[in-house]
Nucleic acid binder design. Sequence first.
DNA 1: CAGTGAGCGAGCTTCCGCTTGACTT
Length: 783
Amino acid sequence: MAKNLVIVESPAKAKTIEKILGKDFEVKSCFGHIRDLEKDDMGIDIENNFKPKYVIPEDKEKVVKELKKLAKDTDEVWLATDEDREGEAISWHLCEVLHLDPKTTKRIVFHEITKPAIENAVQHPRKLDMDRVNAQQARRILDRIVGFEISPVLWRKMSMRNSLSAGRVQSVAVRLIVEREREINHFQSVSTFKVEAYFTGKDINGKNISFKADGPGKFKTAEDAEKFLQQCVAAAYTVKDIQVKPGKKSPAAPFTTSTLQQEASRKLGYSVSKTMLLAQKLYESGNITYMRTDSVNLSDTAVGEIEKAIKKSFGDKYHQHRKFKNKNESAQEAHEAIRPTYMENTTVEDSDTRKLYELIWKRTIASQMADAELEKTIAKIDISTNHEELTASGEVLKFDGFLKVYMESHDDEEEQEDEQEGSLPPLAVKQSLDLKEMKATERFSRPAPRYTEASLVKKLEELGIGRPSTYAPTITTIQKRNYVEKRDKEGIKRDFRILVLKADKISKQTESENTGAEKSKLFPTDLGMIVTDFLNQYFNNVMDYGFTAKIEEEFDEIASGKKVWNNMLKEFYFPFHKDVENTLENAERVKGERPLGTDAASGKPIVARMGRYGPMIQIGSVEDEEKPRFAKLKATQSIETISLEEAMELFKLPRNLGLFEGTDVVVNIGRFGPYAQHDKKFYSLKKEMDPYTVELDEVAPLIAEKRTAKDERTIKIFEKEKIQILKGPYGPYIKQGLKNFKIPKEKIDTAADLTVEEAKAIIEEAKANPPKKKAPPRKKKAE
DNA sequence: CAGTGAGCGAGCTTCCGCTTGACTT
């Protein structure tokens, strides 16, 4: 038994540190938090000054038991959890559970897992910082109160009430998406005309050249643009002035969780959860440093390694020592930036993680490289027939610097393309130019783009909302709650006008472009919008974009001993709780109704609204003698934007397509999407089939297809015993009635040879030994 | 698996932030 027990949060870290510290130290991991607030009754004794009731969750019992045993048998326990607020709290919980004295137990921290950092930490232990622990408790308790008091309000007040939730982070994330959507819906596009002139001529060396110049500003109307072109008829063009300016570009800071998620999304098209999964793999295999971090700092050791790598591969002049500072005030910087552990590994074997690793490698190495040097040339071109001038500009890369390995991408790629500049040929002042043609092209202003997962993370980080470990789970949650969905949107065709001046004649053309197409963007659902409106109305304090930043300041005051944590909670809780009670008492049940007009056939009102099972259209009211008619909205439609015509279309279902094998085939949209019904059986329509237009000859093959699929799935049937041996996604299994049974491993390969007796025996065996309940029991979600 | 849409009341859900596994019907 080692003399010293060191406890860290992550098991991968434990392994590395154990190697560094040697045989007197045993390093174990507690796998993050080991206690949490009890779930029943909030786990907070509000009357008793917000006294928290902590319990050890079932899935942590094992590790706690093991740590208890080790702690008993060791001379000294060292608490080496992360230096941030959460880490300090984890150490305190360890003291409580392992019966260590917080006043004497050694607390050490390292911001980087390097030999000097760890040895230095062991030489300078401190004691637990209770102020910081209390700041964490205040954070935890406040989040519990917000989540567990508002969510039940939603269950009471929403017409759709299946497992709705609200929280300090998720509700604001949804709000951002809802507001962006409305901004887009209300956006009024304005068109302007942009002039571009194409010249030919000879450069200073007598070489034939051609280049482009931009016109003087944008014209508001086609008439203004035409007037300008008219003025240019028969004009002479001369170079009036040439300016050359040096410029430079600097590399971005090394990756944090948030910037890694953004770049992996833009460059590799990964979702944030995919990025984190792959990063976790790279971390566990020892290839990169910790992947949940908000720090841009690199250890001195790493900076040295990077310098060596740059000088070796690219030469001394490509190196430039840089130290990055976090812009974000909410950063807690318990770790390093995300970087390769060994710079000499330019790639990894594993093909799944390779692209992400290479991205991290490039970004890291670029961050210590020299600036790229540019030369920007601007030529002014005089028009003889008016007082305006044209501008041609070009950019030449004089020294590539960090661009040799890496260039950061931006969200608004389209805008970038517009501004992308090539080089300008060498021209001389007073040189005359030949106009090939001049175009005035109509351009439309665009609304802000919808959020991607990654751009939402960026926004949340800017607002100081959420932490590196929660960005990915938050995005999953708001989608799982059906507040938000990720999908593509097809663009629409739009015409634009072009005026062309060529050979002193003006001609007009119309062309069309596709606009508004989006891929993998976050759209709010009707539910998301309705819940957001409700929360904004009754809980505007918590929904405020600055709320987290405000309470973070207070947590900082608690951490620095300037404020008492219970008092902070008191100040928050009582007004908040009053809002909760007021809402419960006064708010009406929300239906999200929007009147669309009157039905021409019956004269009854038509409304779009939220039903118990989702957004729908209703004609007439329940008070009418005749029952109202209902139709479900399509997935891409929304209560807020659907038109009366679109709504009426929805009543064309169910459609009878005619007879097949003597019985009717009827298509409709159900709980699981569009389907056809024939002879009491159901057949899902293929994705490309539109239930509003699909014909019988397209649907009939589905019926045959399903019949053969069923045959293929069946390995064997014992008719009398009602036992089937079927092929499932995890291999063959036995089905009796509605119940499924696993086939023992040794018989899996010969499942087709099973006899009735053998199958019966397996069923009996399974019934006698029901599979053990796993801890924690995963609750089945009611769909 | 393929309905419904009101209201009542049973009994359920829910937060954020630390960490990784377990293993399918």
